[in-house]
Design a protein around this nucleic acid. Structure first.
Lengths: 199, 199
DNA sequence: AAGCCTACCAAGCATTTGCTTGGTAGGGTG
DNA sequence: CACCCTACCAAGCAAATGCTTGGTAGGCTT
């Protein structure tokens, strides 16, 4: 096999630059990160970025769409499985914390900048993904209520919002290699979500 | 009483401009809101803002410090009361959702821009307030575990993060006058937090 | 009537921003 | 050896940005 097209161990130059950009976008926000910031971090001049990408927008576009494609493929797997609602709910939570572990910058960008980006036609798919995500959680919650594993008096919409927000906002403080693994965090979160903190 | 200094029903001109700025900062972020945006929304030219304020920074400074002063006064009241830990925890949650109801823009600004602002010396007090907030929740949780109203195996630090994030992130979707009052949202949240969603 | 204060306008300046243009060095291929 | 491709540099442009400066209109006080 010829390694001519991707000579670097860390992926193609294009992928390296996207990883650098993702980290900066996550740290400082999309609009607050300049193309000069990205170029400096990569050790090149800002103009040189335009050899690889059309625009700053196309960078964040590729970062987000690639990430979401992978994430929703995993959600779909869970939805399609024949486990009970409680198990599927747990799996969805675990997959989310796994995404924070493996794709922290992408999650952070989506959390911080999606509202702004979605106002451009180019990023309309972000709104669709949002609706899709809502569908995943609401479906699982309703199935849980119907099969009796969740409280019958649950406000499904409100609960969906609590779960969505709590899971993803963890990207603000979770750091790989820190005091807890993402699996431990997911376990604790699932315990609180299902059984509460009361004794 | 002379009404010479505050002729307007909606507060002084200064306060009006701060309210306009707060709304825009919350919507688009601090750095992504220009002084021309604020001036346009107020119906004046951007230069005229500098008759009222030293800088864009001093606007967000006044917005955040005023808000936090009021919020932490309420937390202190709760901490000083002689109710049991569970009641105090509930009260702290209710006060937080009340803040979202009454000071949505301020909460949103703190959530979205505090990380960035705190890198300037001028906003060092934001980090202190953060530590203070942590102290409030951790104190209540530890008291709850000690007095037996909360599970003995609770990871207090992790639980604190879950509560803090879940409560404040609600500012992203909660809208006054919407389908639920802030009191109803607080009730549902407390129920989930304490008892879980499991049947 | 004189002076002062509040609230604003009109114009512009220095810097930063995303992006463009024309060019070059090095390596592989026919 | 001629050709081409990838990856970059050097220089700069138009627009946007925070903020400054000098001035004006209207009301209140003395």
């Amino acid at each position: 096999m010829s390694a001519a097209s991707t000579p670097d161990a860390g992926g193609s130059r294009r992928e390296q630059l996207l990883a650098i950009a993702a980290r900066l976008f996550a740290e400082k926000g999309f609009t607050n990160t300049t193309v000069r910031d990205i170029a400096d971090a990569a050790g090149i001049l800002s103009g040189s970025l335009y050899h690889h990408f059309d625009s700053k927008e196309s960078m964040v576009d590729e970062i987000l769409s690639t990430f979401q494609e992978g994430l929703f493929a995993r959600y779909d797997e869970i939805l399609a499985s024949d486990a009970d609602a409680r198990t599927k709910l747990e799996q969805a939570v675990r997959v989310s914390f796994e995404a924070i572990e493996e794709h922290g910058p992408e999650v952070a960008i989506f959390q911080n900048d999606a509202d702004h980006l979605v106002t451009f036609e180019r990023f309309a798919y972000l709104a669709e993904r949002n609706a899709q995500s809502r569908q995943v959680w609401v479906t699982l919650l309703e199935e849980g209520v119907r099969t009796g594993v969740l409280r019958a008096d649950l406000d499904v919409t409100l609960t969906y919002r609590f779960i969505r927000d709590t899971v993803w906002v963890a990207v603000r403080w979770y750091r790989p290699g820190g005091r807890h693994t993402h699996t431990e965090v997911a376990d604790q979160y699932i315990r609180i979500l299902l059984d509460g903190i009361s004794s």
